[in-house]
């Protein structure tokens, strides 16, 4: 299991992670979501033992990761760079990692390599960005570590290759309970691969839940309310609705139609609005991307504000 306990990570005066607590159960495919500079890559680098936290603990299977060879043996980290080890051929790069990771599997490597048809004796600096990414992913999987950390994992891959790589990851997760932590801006892919996710913003975790519950916990409501007894239109404000306990991420009114993004199960929301006897009431589940945008909007990270 991965645990971050009250972890603080600073880069000089900049706080990248602000006393973060996070738990990732073994065998989970965990997605790290967040705005740029939210702290996703910092978490991955802390988990791979590259960074040392200023405060708090970063634990894998109950042990601190930093400078811990036994724990690092269980973790493989793929960062978002593609230029490293450019002087190697794929074979040399495989041998390089094979010498460090005791469980390295030649069979797995060969099987995956053949599946994506990567040349074994060609210099990696002659590879395209996508091929470099595939190369390091298959090596990462062949290392047979218990934890695989991927930073912008699918960056540079063409759509077909994305499917193949995702399948490789899913197979590994199913075959050997591989714990995968993936950071990505591509929420659809996180949605497809991960079962749990955390949303980060400005070094803090906004939520960390399984994705099903995330997508079922925020809904978009379109409603039209009837006039009062005197025939006047009923005026609902955001504050009015919030006062009565509704957690609203977004509120908009166009003439008599209300567009509300609110947190809560569909049944709960229906029950909330039922006493107001809406003339029109439609409740629509949100995609992960929409939830991401609306959650961050509440925190002032709104694309409309960016001129």
């Amino acid at each position: 299991m991965i645990e971050l306990k009250n972890t603080l990570k600073k880069f000089d005066t900049y706080t990248a992670l602000d006393h973060v607590d996070l738990k990732i159960e073994k065998g989970t495919a965990f997605g790290l979501l967040g705005s740029n500079g939210a702290g996703k890559s910092t978490i991955l680098r802390l988990l791979s033992g590259i960074y040392k936290p200023e405060e708090g603990e970063v634990l894998i299977d109950g042990e601190s990761v930093y400078d811990n060879v036994a724990i690092k043996q269980k973790v493989f980290f793929i960062n978002d760079e593609t230029v490293q080890f450019s002087n190697f051929t794929l074979k040399e790069l495989k041998n390089y990692y094979k010498s460090y990771y005791r469980n390295f599997s030649e069979e797995t490597f060969e099987e995956l390599r053949k599946r994506i048809n990567l040349p074994i004796d060609k210099k990696i600096n002659k590879f395209s960005k996508g091929m470099k990414r595939q190369a390091i992913v298959i090596i990462g999987l062949a290392c047979k570590t218990e934890y695989l950390l991927l930073d912008e994992a699918f960056d540079g891959l063409d759509p077909t290759m994305r499917i193949i790589v995702k399948k490789m990851l899913v197979d590994a997760m199913l075959d050997r309970q591989l714990t995968t932590v993936i950071s990505s801006h591509n929420l659809r892919e996180i949605n497809e691969v991960c079962d749990t996710a955390a949303l980060l913003h400005s070094g803090k975790i906004l939520f960390s839940r399984d994705l099903d519950s995330v997508t079922s916990s925020v809904h978009k409501i379109q409603a039209v309310f009837p006039p009062d007894e005197n025939g006047n239109p009923v005026e609902y404000t955001r504050e009015h609705l919030a006062e009565s306990g509704l957690e609203i991420l977004h509120f908009e009114r166009s003439q008599s139609i209300y567009y509300i993004i609110a947190k809560g199960e569909a049944d709960v929301l229906k029950a909330y609005f039922a006493p107001k006897k809406p003339v029109l009431f439609e409740i629509i589940p949100l995609t992960l991307e929409e939830i991401f945008i609306y959650e961050l909007e509440v925190l002032g990270y709104d694309s409309n504000d960016i001129k």
Partner: peptide, 14 residues
């Protein structure tokens, strides 16, 4: 910078 991660992430102590 480009090769720092891969060196520090390896299962080696400092």
């Amino acid at each position: 910078k480009s090769i720092t991660d891969m060196n520090y992430a390896l299962p080696l102590s400092g």
